[in-house]
Amino acid sequence: MLELRLVQGSLLKKVLESIKDLVNDANFDCSSSGFSLQAMDSSHVALVALLLRSEGFEHYRCDRNMSMGMNLGNMSKMLRCAGNDDIITIKADDGSDTVTFMFESPTQDKISDFEMKLMDIDSEHLGIPEAEYQSIVTMPSAEFARICKDLSGIGDTVVISVTKEGVKFSTRGDIGTANIVCRQNTTVDKPEEATVINMSEPVSLTFALRYMNSFTKATTLSNTVTISLSSELPVVVEYKIAEMGYIRFYLAPKIEE
């Protein structure tokens, strides 16, 4: 038996909106520690890892570990029926081939339940080793989204380079080139507006902008984004989910020319 009650249901709505176009089907894993997901896109270039810790739920019951295969497009269709202020409860019985999403309006005057069919998904769980990243950039998530969107109008790939000077996002296309440099800036009014660069070694990697743009759909989950880079490793683009966990996108680099 599984029953997870999330008062801030909008978080789950936002999570789905941010991953449904990247991943078609995924297994949600439920254990006593939390509700999680790991899935790759169909071309195995990007991987998403989601964690919503059990402590973040108002009520969390998971009698035994469960893996529930869901079509994210269908799950998103159902979650879109929840109001932004609604409380969302996820329920499933052991061995059941369905999951139920229950939505309660804040005033309890509207209660809906949606039952969705589960599916068998043969997904391979990858081991993600702990890594010391050469450069870690934290910046406003909206700024990162703006840069990815702007550059994708000019080129298909972005070179992200971190040096003592700052982080540089560069692209090149038929119409020309673009370079955007963000310097470390910690003298801001609000901490979430800061750009912080922790660099142990300079690093420069090339990535497909199409994927970066897809990751920025998670911008609504967090005011800041953390980009962790090391040569010879996928970049990690992480959005923290307030007091609950995170959504991390891993993207394999392009091979340098």
Partner: peptide
């Protein structure tokens, strides 16, 4: 065009 690497060439099956 830079060739694209895959996630599976960095992370292996758990």
């Amino acid at each position: 065009v830079n060739p694209q690497r895959q996630i599976t060439s960095f992370f292996s099956k758990a």
